[in-house]
Design a binder for these strands. Structure first.
Length: 314
DNA sequence: CACGCGTGGTA
DNA sequence: TTACCAAGCGT
């Protein structure tokens, strides 16, 4: 859960997750649908699918692997997480390199080559940080102290060099460039994509939803039926051709959602199905279900909230 | 190796 | 408002 996600955002999800799945066997036995439902809103949904697959593998093995090499073979466990588990859970003297450790390392050694190209060099240098005997003796404390140094002292902006225990050894500070490191390659501009979604309610308050493909964007999560997301806006005529039934539809507003790599603008249409008319809808548009039980990603929750707000002001 | 993959917080 | 950032991984 903590991969690229802040502790604050994770805690509530973590607690809820552990309540449902106290052991790795419980998680391994759960339906994917339930796992994704508990993850909905946290983002990076491949992590949920990987964690689920990982639990199944560990249950199959009968125990957790305790070496970096074996941990790396598990789904969702990469160079960082394998070393975090090995050092924190099993006392193996290795250094997990996350964003914090990359920053600390780039400053300590005054590495000016920009990310992400400098990543292999940073990893090699970071691997040397636990040479001192005290670090070898307590791999778990060393790893977590390194994270905390990065999170509270050697911060991205305005680092507290005056209170830093490593200031005497810091080449970045000596050169006066610590706060400017790590350098980063310039980023690409974020394109905009456009889509139209239809929120169709039946007489019981259930809404028409379908499951997205297992892989790719929002993989395995639920959505309201709609158009593809393309680089140009849809005309009303084009959009309505993609609707799950004839209508009439109410244009209810627009939702903007920013993903890592593109901005999404969605037009939302709503309708309530006249009773007895829900048989003619093609199954490719989904089934009528309670939104409470669905695995709706943030962008779809926004769409739903818009229709609810729109209804109340109508 | 570059890119795709969410969401919330902060300056 | 925009830009950046967060206990990265898989392809």
């Amino acid at each position: 859960m903590l991969q690229q996600t802040t502790v604050k955002a994770v805690i509530a999800y973590y607690e809820r997750f552990l309540t449902h799945y106290p052991t790795v066997q419980d998680l391994a036995a759960a339906p994917q649908e339930d796992v994704l439902h508990l993850w909905a809103g946290l983002g990076y949904y491949a992590r949920a699918r990987n964690l689920h697959a990982c639990a199944k593998r560990v249950a199959e093995l009968g125990q957790f692997p305790d070496t970096v090499e074996e941990l790396l073979k598990l789904p969702g466990i990469g160079a960082y997480t394998a070393r975090a588990i090995a050092s924190i859970a099993f006392g193996v003297p290795v250094v997990p390199v996350d964003g914090n450790v990359e920053r600390v390392t780039s400053r300590l050694f005054a590495i000016e080559d920009p990310l992400p190209a400098s990543r292999p060099l940073l990893a090699r240098q970071a691997a040397l940080l636990n040479q001192p005997k005290a670090a070898q003796k307590r791999p778990s404390d060393f790893a977590q102290a390194l994270f905390d140094l990065g999170a509270t002292v050697c911060t991205p902006r305005n680092p507290s060099c005056l209170t830093c225990p490593w200031r005497p050894a810091c080449q970045g500070h000596a050169k006066g460039i610590a706060s400017t490191l790590p350098r980063k390659a310039p980023k690409q501009a974020r394109p905009t994509r456009y889509g139209v979604h239809f929120i169709l309610q039946d007489e019981t308050g259930h809404r028409l939803m379908r499951k997205r493909p297992e892989k790719g964007l929002l993989g395995g999560m639920d959505e309201f039926p709609g158009t593809e997301w393309q680089s140009t806006p849809w005309t009303e005529k084009e959009a309505l051709a993609a609707a799950p039934f004839l209508g009439p539809w109410t244009a209810c507003g627009e939702v903007t959602h920013v993903f890592t790599h593109f901005t999404l603008r969605l037009m939302i249409y709503t309708a309530t199905l006249p009773s007895g008319h829900n048989a003619g809808i093609d199954p490719s548009f989904g089934t009528f279900r309670s939104t409470e039980r669905a695995a709706l990603p943030g962008v779809m929750k926004k769409c739903l909230a818009l229709t609810v707000a729109d209804l109340e002001t109508r």
